[in-house]
Every structure is written in structure tokens, then in C-alpha cells.
């Protein structure tokens, strides 16, 4: 059951779209003050709908959602004062300059003109956009636009910052730059609610992660605990042109420390406790069976492994 003292609290929160698609199915969730909370799942899992409900843009069809104790459905105007949103798509005001985007955001949220101007200039400096202050937002690159949206989202001092796939569509460099900034932000107080299908992002930046699929939360814990729940030290991924199912059985029996195997997207995922000497054993067993191994890799259990364990599918499918 969700804890009503939390900053974000969902109780049996549901959304069924017209046409019958149940995007979010009786979600219970608590996020605590100062936490960086990640909602991890593939596209279509219901993450954006969940974030949409918490940020008042999607009307739930069941349950309750509270942000900082305020019911977002009953008092949206009140709740909106307490949240900041970095959306998935560029929603900057194209009729305004870079600085004006921040300045008017400040005014929308009740800042005086002087304070809004000072805050806009300060944030432009901090987000390394000062040299573009008077340009139209159309002149910004994807990474810069995302930084500006992050600056806009925190400008009014929200209690909760929602990041909806904030780095989707960004090049690796911009991605790192954005996370540098978000990393600084988290030290300053707001609770961060991140929805992402990027497991590295969730793993690196979140205090707790909820794994979501088909509108339900399947597991929720710290990334470390989630990964530990897999129980294996190593995952060996074997690609073969031959009888994969047969080979998987032999590997499960023959490899020292093998715990279980799964077929994921036509590849064998073999979970092994212990690390050393695994690969030679895999190659030897395949040779014995006369099966050619075309690719072989060893990875540590990741949140992806957790997701596969829970759903039998890969995160990106």
C-alpha cells in the first residue's frame, strides 16, 4: 500500500484510454522526499501515462494520485505549482527567445518581473546557454533545447521534478552533459521522478527503480537489490545457428555454477554463479554437441537482466 506521507503517492491509480487500452493498471507507488525514483520499462509500458497523470495532463480513470499531499485530479492548479516537467518532446515556446522562455515561465509561476529576470539570467549561466540568451529557440540544438527545458522545469523551485525520457533522441555527449546538470540538481533538494527505457540511466542515477510492463509494476527496489535478486554473478549470452534449445539444456547441466537458462530473442541467456572459467566450458560443450557458436558474450546482471527475468522479453523490443 502506498504511503500517504510520501512526496508522490499513487493508490490503485489506473488509466484506461477510450477504445479500451488499459495503459496503467492499479498502480501503487510511493516516492519519498529527496529520492531519485526511476520508472523503467519498454515503450508502451505505461510510463508516460503515469507521468502524465501525476502532472495533471492525463485524467485517471481510477484510483488516486497525490503530489506533495495534493490530489492532482481535484486540485490541478495547486499541484502544478509544486511540479516541474522536462518533457519528452521539445515544448519550448517558439515565439519567444531563449531568455524569454525562462522569464515568462517565472511569471506564470508568480515571480515578480525583476526576480524572473534575475533567475532567468542565473539559470542561463548555469545551464551554459547564456551566449544564446537572445536567440530564438529554433536556433538551439537538441541538447541545448533539453537543457533549456531542464532549466525551465526547476525555475519555480518545484518539490518534484518529472523527467520523461529526458535523453531520448540526444547524442551521447548531450546525454552526458544533461546528466551532469541533473546530477547537480539532485543535490539541491527536489525529488526526481524519471521515466526511461534506458536501463543504464536508471541504474546509474536512481536511488530506487520500479520496473514497469503492460501497465503494472513488476518489481521495485534499489538498482543493487534488483540486480542481486537475479542471484547470478554472470550472464553468458550465446548466439548459435544450430539447435539453441538443446544447447541451452546441455549448458545448464554442464557449466559449473550454471543456475538457469532463458531464450531471449533467439539467444541463450545462461545465468551463472561465479565468474572464472565459464567461457571455455561453454565452447567445449558446444563443440561436443557439434553446434557452432557464432557469438559469445559475458555480461554482469543488469536491470535488463531483471526485466528479462520478469517478463521473458528484452527491454528494447
Amino acid at each position: 500500500m502506498a504511503d500517504p506521507q510520501s512526496v508522490i503517492c499513487c493508490q490503485q491509480l489506473s488509466k484506461q484510454y477510450p477504445g479500451g487500452i488499459l495503459a496503467v493498471d492499479r498502480l501503487d507507488l510511493s516516492v519519498f522526499p529527496g529520492e531519485v525514483f526511476g520508472l523503467l520499462g519498454p515503450n508502451g509500458a505505461g510510463k508516460t501515462t503515469t507521468a502524465g497523470m501525476l502532472t495533471t495532463r492525463v485524467i485517471p480513470t481510477g484510483g488516486r494520485a497525490l503530489v506533495a499531499g495534493i490530489d492532482v485530479v481535484a486540485h490541478p492548479a495547486m499541484a502544478k505549482q509544486l511540479i516541474g516537467v522536462v518533457p519528452q518532446t521539445n515544448t519550448l515556446d517558439r515565439s519567444l527567445t531563449v531568455r524569454e522562455n525562462l522569464y515568462f515561465h517565472g511569471l506564470f509561476f508568480g515571480m515578480g518581473t525583476k526576480r524572473a529576470r534575475a533567475a532567468a539570467d542565473y539559470l542561463l549561466e548555469q545551464f551554459r546557454l547564456a551566449d544564446r540568451a537572445n536567440m530564438p529557440v529554433a536556433a538551439l540544438s537538441g541538447g541545448m533545447a533539453q537543457r533549456l527545458m531542464a532549466a525551465r522545469a526547476i525555475m519555480h523551485g518545484p518539490s518534484v521534478l518529472f523527467l520523461d525520457e529526458p535523453t531520448a533522441g540526444l547524442d551521447p555527449q548531450s546525454r552526458i552533459a544533461l546528466w551532469d546538470i541533473l546530477g547537480e540538481l539532485r543535490d539541491r533538494g527536489p525529488t526526481i521522478f524519471l521515466s526511461t527505457h534506458n536501463m543504464e540511466e536508471a541504474d546509474q542515477h536512481c536511488d530506487r527503480v520500479a520496473i514497469m510492463d503492460r501497465g503494472r509494476i513488476l518489481a521495485m527496489n534499489t538498482p543493487r537489490a534488483l540486480k542481486a535478486s537475479v542471484g547470478a554473478d554472470t550472464v553468458v549470452i550465446v548466439t548459435t545457428a544450430g539447435d539453441a534449445t538443446g544447447l541451452a539444456q546441455h549448458l545448464e547441466q554442464g557449466v559449473t555454477g550454471a543456475m538457469r537458462s532463458q531464450m531471449v530473442g533467439g539467444k541463450i541467456h545462461l545465468h551463472v554463479g561465479g565468474v572464472s572459467g565459464v567461457l571455455p566450458q561453454v565452447v567445449a560443450i558446444a563443440d561436443d554437441q557439434g553446434i557452432t557458436v557464432t557469438d559469445l558474450s559475458v555480461v554482469e546482471p543488469s536491470l535488463e537482466t531483471v526485466f528479462i527475468n520478469l517478463t521473458g522479453r528484452e527491454l528494447r523490443d
Binding site: 495533471t56 495532463r57 518533457p87 521539445n90 515544448t91 519550448l92 515556446d93 525551465r152
Partner: peptide
């Protein structure tokens, strides 16, 4: 989609 930004105003 830029109307989103103003829809999020309080």
C-alpha cells in the same frame, strides 16, 4: 506541441 508548456502553468 508547445501549448504543453502553458498547460503546465499553475
Amino acid at each position: 506541441k508547445e501549448i504543453e508548456d502553458r498547460v503546465l502553468a499553475p
